[in-house]
Design a protein around this nucleic acid. Structure first.
Lengths: 352, 352
DNA sequence: CTGAAAGCGCTTACAG
DNA sequence: CTGAAAGCGCTTACAG
């Protein structure tokens, strides 16, 4: 089969408008140097023909290469969580590099605000066309976003959102609902006289994600008139010894804890504690498909992991930038990821 | 930023081999009419330079359009399940039609083997380049596959697999493991003295998927020395009245059924029965994210739905054909989908 | 403000 | 068995 006599292209538009294809191209890309009159004439024809540019030809002919910057935490000793988004970026890049798109990845240290600021500054010096950001620090991101907006550089947030910063898109979990799901799973088989423990382990005091999760978690309890009492604890040190010390104390005060919910990926530390203190009958739920967590899933110490497809988030984030920069098509402002439930039985097929 | 002085292309290969680019092109695509000697010389250079063809240029220049046929069940009154794969096909097509790829979709009637055979024949008359199949009927698919192999037309199976037919790839659930997950969820909070009911509702006698699911389901019980007794029932009529009649009888015989597992998407019929007969305390699990099922998820009649991302299956199936036909890259023979767990709390974010 | 011409990296029909 | 030339649908640098 042969290609049909192709749809109307720039040539046909040029012919009808009585101009050269160069001028059509100028209009197509909103470049300056075309009289209003000609511009209107050409735009009318474009609309009339419902012209669809051939992206292959466009990217092949173009000499410009489009650069996307990625600002995400580095994969650390502490967690390999950020490996997944990294893979998502790489997957997307492999698919679109033919189109003359390049990615530059900047890693910051999650325990170091300055490194975030520093890398953000480096990106701005580079004059890139679009940015993918995991906005871990609110105030710092506000400034960064402001600068990007001034320069008209589109940016996409993944993993967590900071609304009202005029990001092109947020692609990540609905944290409130995610906590809600956690509560459902945690109480699904829980005796009414047992207590539920919420554990937040985080060095950062201003962890804004945690709150939405806990709110959703508690909402499930009130929506369902759940009788279980909720106890909560904040632990601001992440090492095992500190966590174990705090938990020992909580379990000492509350003899009848039947289930624990950890608001982030540090659930493996809690799992380790439960195992060491022979409390594996406590149901345990936490976040993220990282190696250390899966180990305890296998062990039956963690019952469920809640995951939000981090690889996909990054992949789709890059694609959203590609859509706007290359395809000139619009992307949705808000894209909530599925709230995946991972267990011992299904984790082997889970693809982040 | 400008494109770097691009990597080596056909021109450079031609120059080094002292031939024209036409000859290089012939070798690149394994066309006849090149002497062994020249061919070898060119191939050596290709290897040496690690030549990567520019797909954009290739597809832009080529006049051939690649046609993919899709053979899937029609969306029926009975189920809108097949809407999802259809969307997956459309999504894939939108992404690659620029490359000169066309899809032709053929729908058959799941309750009519002949329609499957008929559509398969139509496809073969059309001389397409690749095929995506939901292989609902074993014997008929065997013949079809044989013919495709003879003609060297690659085909991909989705939704269910028939091994040993030399498909390019299978993209779909691991049914055994999927049943295993179902058993876990069903027994998670079940009292040991309760019975578990497996329900298979299907007109077709030779439903080969069902067996793998039940096997996995039972395997969970033996692996975990689960004490619950298993009862099973096959229902070969799909209308509500027939199903209700059979179920009434089973529940009459077994007073202590605490949970029911439906091996396919007809779980909504069972949900309807449980609701009507005021047995909603029975835990209920079944398959597929279809409207009728979600309704009962909302109602708390269905506890969990197990889903295998049918949209993604089709999307990836088309992409696999694209990879082989256009990109000339290899795809994995077996691609198991995640076994997703959908509940009342997380379904709103589920994306098939 | 506008156009003619060359070119992006391939493929193809034709001629020999 | 092989090559010269045209062309795919755009973009660009240059000239006016």
């Amino acid at each position: 089969m042969e290609k049909e006599n192709t749809l109307f292209g720039v040539k046909e538009i040029a012919r009808r408008a009585n101009v050269s294809t160069a001028t059509v191209d100028r209009v197509l890309h909103n470049r300056t140097g075309v009289s209003e009159k000609t511009k209107k004439r050409i735009n009318d024809i474009i609309k009339e023909l419902d012209y669809q540019p051939n992206i292959l030809a466009s990217r092949l002919a173009s000499k410009k290469i489009i650069t996307l910057a990625i600002l995400i935490p580095e994969v650390s000793e502490e967690t390999d969580f950020w490996e997944a988004p990294l893979n998502g970026v790489r997957k997307a890049e492999a698919e679109i590099k033919q189109y003359g798109i390049q990615t530059l990845i900047f890693f910051f240290d999650l325990n170091n605000k300055d490194s975030y600021v520093q890398k953000a500054r480096e990106i701005l010096e580079l004059d890139v066309h679009g940015i993918l950001i995991a906005p871990s620090f609110v105030t710092e991101t506000q400034e960064f976003a402001k600068e990007c907006n001034q320069r008209k550089i589109p940016f996409v947030f993944i993993d967590s959102d900071i609304p009202e910063l005029k990001s092109l898109s947020y692609i990540g979990p609905h944290l409130y609902k995610s906590g809600y799901v956690g509560a459902k799973l945690l109480t699904y088989r829980l005796q009414p006289d047992k207590k539920v423990l919420i554990i937040n382990i985080s060095k950062e005091i201003d962890n804004f994600n945690y709150e939405a999760i806990e709110e959703g978690f508690r909402a499930y309890f009130s929506d369902n008139q759940n009788p279980n009492e909720i106890v909560r604890i904040d632990i601001h040190e992440t090492d095992y010894q500190s966590v174990a010390r705090h938990l020992t104390y909580v379990f000492h005060l509350n003899k009848d804890i039947g289930a624990a919910f950890v608001t982030n990926s540090r659930v493996n530390t809690v799992a380790s504690f439960l195992k060491n203190s022979h409390r594996t009958e406590v149901s345990l739920i936490g976040y993220d498909f990282v190696k250390d967590n899966v180990k305890y899933l296998e062990n039956n110490v963690i019952d469920f992991l809640i995951c939000h497809r981090p690889e996909d988030q990054a992949y789709r984030g890059i694609m959203a930038l590609y859509q706007t920069l290359v395809m000139n098509s619009s992307v949705s402002k808000l894209s909530y990821m599925p709230i995946d439930i991972v267990t011992k039985e299904n984790y082997e097929f889970y693809q982040n």
